[in-house]
Nucleic acid binder design. Structure first.
Lengths: 163, 163
DNA sequence: GGAAGTTATATAACATGTTATACATTAAAT
DNA sequence: ATTTAATGTATAACATGTTATATAACTTCC
């Protein structure tokens, strides 16, 4: 067995550590989504959620809302356009800005997700770390240990059985 | 001002959130490294640290130690070879395994980093989140707020002045 | 009202993670 | 011993983030 340097080094490698846990979590989340038979990527959800919450938004506003750069938002919105979940048209007052809105298909997906998928994911993540407390490095260690012991998808399934 | 959906959605977007903070932290860390005039990427450090701690390791062991997949380790080690910080040669007993070790240049870099850079980074990150406590979502919010208020590089600089 | 600057989006080039798979070498089995 | 299976690394293809820059549309200012 090899030592986990990133964990050992603590604050020094906290960037790598957070990224690595985030990637793992998102991959596990994707599994839950796939098992539910939905054809969407975990990383695309925040965009749909943002429009659902605030109404049509421009590319720039979406980038801000999701916390990534504008080219990243442009690409993801391009994918959602292809999938038919959103529609994009120039703002009436300013032809530079593109207003992105949900299509009917997009609304359906969001409504269904709100009812079925999002609660399941949130519950699984809450099960994973909702009870934790204390210094962040300790919580991160606990999260990694717990994920290794019981993957997120099974926490989600367990939650559903109990409902 | 647009609402930060990822933050608002809490546990539901925790994967995205951790990733985003990790990326930000690592970018800020890179800035500290660059300002110190070192030609190395933040993401390459854990590999050097792993070898420094455990002695020569194979590609597979390095992947495990750093917590990424083997192809990722192969690529990063390729870069470190190019930079002259590591050396790689087949294991004497098993020609499939490649043992990666530090070159003199690599050792110098690690020694210098241990003295000058790593303590600075660790101190800056500790300044950022070492005093935090409580539920993880609250700590993450605090970290994002603090990073927005005072970037990591300046926390690092401040620490140095006080030393 | 037209030149010059600003802003919003798109695109190109790159970084770094992933999965799937090819290839070389070692171990196992008949 | 030779075939077959397993293992370690390399490579290809892709995903999704970034920075830098091009392009189109609006604003400003003489």
């Amino acid at each position: 067995m090899v030592e986990d340097v990133v964990r050992t080094l603590g604050f020094l490698c906290m960037g790598s550590r957070l990224r690595r846990i985030g990637e793992r979590l998102q991959a596990d989340t994707q599994q839950v989504i796939d098992e539910a038979g939905l054809s969407i990527q975990a990383g695309q959800y925040p965009f749909l959620a943002a429009i659902d919450r605030s109404g049509p938004l421009t590319i720039g506003e979406l980038a801000q809302a999701v916390g990534i750069t504008q080219p990243g938002a442009t690409r993801t919105i391009g994918q959602l356009l292809e999938l038919g979940y959103v529609d994009m048209q120039p703002a009436p007052d300013d032809q530079r800005r593109r207003l992105v809105s949900l299509t009917d298909k997009g609304e359906d997906l969001v409504d269904h997700s709100k009812k079925v998928i999002w609660p399941r994911i949130a519950a699984a993540v809450a099960d994973l770390c909702g009870d934790l407390d204390g210094p962040i490095l300790e919580q991160l260690a606990a999260i990694e240990d717990r994920l290794a012991a019981v993957p997120l998808a099974r926490r989600s399934a367990a939650k559903e059985e109990n409902s």
